[in-house]
Design a protein around this nucleic acid. Structure first.
Lengths: 190, 190
DNA sequence: GCGCCCCGAATGAACGTTCAATAGACATAA
DNA sequence: TTATGTCTATTGAACGTTCATTCGGGGCGC
């Protein structure tokens, strides 16, 4: 994700926002164009088709997530604190970037997702996976398939963020720590 | 959900299957008609619009879930066993009815879902909620909002079923019990 | 003049929905 | 029994709309 042309970035961001508001299929290219302040044809200068636009949007969001989440780990932190930090900061990232969250949700259950390579598929969960590998090496996590565990953890994060954003239940700092504790207790050996 | 006219049921079932295969918006009414063995116009005899069809499909699946899940609880079962049974049997229901699972997933993140009343919204999670209320009354569950807890539990079930169906990780009996144990440890007081 | 970026009206396909027409079931009247 | 009318179930071609995509052209830097 080098320096993106202004317009290309505008198109990606507009698509992200529109998908959040109108859903995946309630976002015609014409609307994207209008919101991005470009002509319909311009989109096709940067993207082959709507499909490619969406695939690239996935890569783009992955990039944003990784950028936001790296570097909030200090040395010598104990494993539980490390987990809490990762769980809560990712949850807060989704809450602060609801458009990314909504897009990912839609994307992950769409046929597009299946089309990405396994690797691409999982990169956006990588820092969770990384933690789980470490935890296993230390022998403090349950003996459960690591990929499965990372999917379960990630799903808990997404669910919590969604509940918060929907306003179904109001979550404060205390609740986030409680949730992280729940998930932590579900993956560690008791 | 009284005795449904043959055709009405055929339309609902066809829609369910098509949505699983082609996604929510890859299922035009024309395809539904063909698969159900009726003419396009016939659908509109039973449903006002595609929207209503989908809303009724939600009610229909709710009904199927409740029917399948009621009555697998025996008296005098201890709470943990009770939870395991509920968790695993719902997970297995989703695995045996992937079309229901896929539909629910799509439905829950669509604007349709927001349009249902809160009550309708939550009825299909009711037997989980019911368990959590009971657990709280017994004082064995963590002090966390019950609705939140039930959403987290349900999301874990859906995630596990999906992982299994996607073939990302193969889950056998042992794995289901391990997962149920994980979730159990995440909601009970330690 | 060539290449790049950009425009937006035009195109054509796909889709949800409508409707005039048909068929059958059932009842009533002759 | 036959004729007539009514009501519901069903059909599928036709309609109007929406949408992704195309394309001929314009501006601008080199």
């Amino acid at each position: 994700m080098e320096i993106l042309a202004e317009k290309k970035k505008a198109i990606l961001e507009s698509t992200l926002k529109l998908i959040k508001e109108n859903g995946f299929h309630g976002t015609p290219m014409s609307l994207v164009a209008k919101k991005a302040g470009v002509a319909a044809g311009t989109i096709y200068h940067y993207f082959d088709s709507k499909d490619t636009l969406i695939m690239e949007l996935f890569a783009y969001t992955q990039h944003r997530i990784q950028e936001a989440l790296q570097g909030n780990l200090q040395e010598g932190m104990d494993l539980q604190e490390n987990f809490f930090l990762r769980w809560i900061s990712r949850c807060q990232f989704y809450i602060q970037n609801p458009d990314v969250l909504f897009f990912l949700e839609q994307f992950m259950i769409s046929p597009y997702y299946a089309r990405c390579s396994q690797v691409t598929n999982e990169r956006f969960r990588s820092e969770i996976m990384q933690f789980i590998e470490m935890g296993h090496r230390h022998g403090i996590l349950r003996d459960i398939d690591q990929k499965l565990m990372s999917i379960m953890v990630h799903s808990s994060i997404i669910t919590a963020a969604k509940v918060h954003l929907d306003g179904k239940v109001t979550l404060g700092d205390k609740e986030f720590r409680q949730l992280a504790q729940m998930i932590w207790d579900s993956i560690r050996k008791l």
